[in-house]
Simulated assay, not measured.
Amino acid sequence: MQRRVLLGLAGTLPLGCTAVAQSSAPGLRELARARGMSFGTAVRSEKLEADPILSALVAREADLIVPEWEGKWDVIQPERGRFEFEPLRAVMRFAQAQNQRVRGHALLWHEAMPRWLAPALAEGQSQAQQILETHITTVLAETRAGIRDWDVVNEVIAAPPGGDNPTPGSGDLRPTPWLAALGPGYVERALRIARQADPTLRLTINEFAVYSDTPWAQAKRDSLLRVVRGLLERNCPLDAIGIQGHLQMREPFRPEPYVAFLRALRALGLAVLITELDVREPDVLAPTIEGRDAAVAEYAGAFLQASRDGGVRSFLTWGLTDRDSWLVLEPGVARRDGVVTRGHPYDAELRPKPLRARLAQFFSA
């Protein structure tokens, strides 16, 4: 978006958002940068193009952006051998215009797979290896100039029953078509392909459900540490761990085990970042919107502080606003009682909420 467009938006913003845009107070990206940290958010190219108010907000608040879908297999390679990069290029162009950085998400995942992929993987290890190598090398060649950090593998860790993992496995790795096709070495294989394709790229493993004070979260933390230590012992290239941060208020949170986990990762020489922060409200809601928003901000604030205590310096939310959020649209995570979850810094009308204020306070401390 051009500067003249951004300057012209202030008079058209909703009341709450206008106060943010016209205030002399800095945006979150500026506050974070002043403290040696980074703030970012997930975006969708079609929303940036269709909603100038939202795009102005993203430009103001985020130093770092990540495409929600544009970097996943079903968008990039909908048919075998046919690559479609224009949606991802749109995100990269926006970032360049706003002096933002872009994270890539995700080179290997068991979801968002085009229809052709799983059957092709099942035809044999040699073909599965070729498919994986072709995809990673092609994508990294396309994005090398604009993306210097990729989630190479996403959500590979299994967990015992009772947690937020619907497909627990007998080992540390989640059962997926990739595991079936290539065996337990597929994570290492993907990381080595990525390093060979781009020697200076930051290679990240991205994982969820490792934050709460529950037995299944602790088991998943232990599994992730075992997998990571095994990779590093084999001199596998790996630079960072992404902690998604899809928080669930119905689960207890205690800083001590989570901070110890982060510090264990840091002790291995890895960077750690929060990649997909949002908050699902509990089954029993506070009686007012104000109470609900305050509770969300308090829960997220404890997580943010613990993350920083554990050495995290980069924090991304999975969207800035409740408008078109996956917490609302995805049946698996939306509230069954029909109440719209208020789990982002801005509401559906793009008005700042207490979570936005908590982030500003966090980055100013």
Rank of each mutant, 00 (worst) to 15 (best):
L201E: 04
P177M: 11
P168V: 02
P287Y: 00
L225N: 08
G245Y: 00
K353I: 00
D164E: 15
G185Y: 08
L13E: 11
L327K: 06
F85T: 02
E155S: 09
R195K: 15
N154W: 03
V187S: 01
R266W: 03
S45G: 11
R195T: 03
V210P: 01
A267C: 05
W150R: 09
W326E: 09
Y346Q: 02
G162V: 06
S212M: 06
I131V: 14
L182A: 03
E256L: 13
N99L: 09
S325T: 01
G291Y: 03
L28S: 06
T176H: 06
R148A: 13
G310H: 07
Q125H: 12
I241S: 08
E133W: 10
G343I: 07
D172K: 05
E68K: 03
I53E: 10
R33Q: 14
E233C: 08
M92S: 12
G162Y: 03
V279C: 14
E281A: 10
D74G: 00
V156N: 04
L231I: 05
D198H: 13
L57V: 07
C236M: 06
E133T: 14
A197M: 07
R356L: 14
S307Y: 05
Q22N: 11
L231M: 13
N206I: 02
R280E: 12
L359Y: 10
W326T: 04
A181L: 09
P354M: 07
A32I: 06
F303R: 05
N154M: 08
N206S: 04
G163F: 02
D213H: 14
G343V: 07
L48P: 00
L232H: 07
A158T: 15
L57K: 04
D164H: 15
H110V: 07
R358I: 02
A90N: 13
A260P: 05
A300F: 04
L285V: 05
C236Y: 03
G338M: 11
I274V: 15
A34G: 13
R356T: 01
A112N: 14
F315W: 03
L179A: 10
A97I: 01
G146K: 12
L316S: 09
A95P: 08
I289D: 13
A97S: 13
I274F: 01
A297P: 01
V228L: 10
H105A: 03
F315E: 02
S314C: 13
T200K: 13
V339F: 09
Q77E: 15
H344E: 03
I289Y: 08
G146A: 15
Q248E: 13
T143K: 12
A194T: 09
T41D: 08
T204A: 15
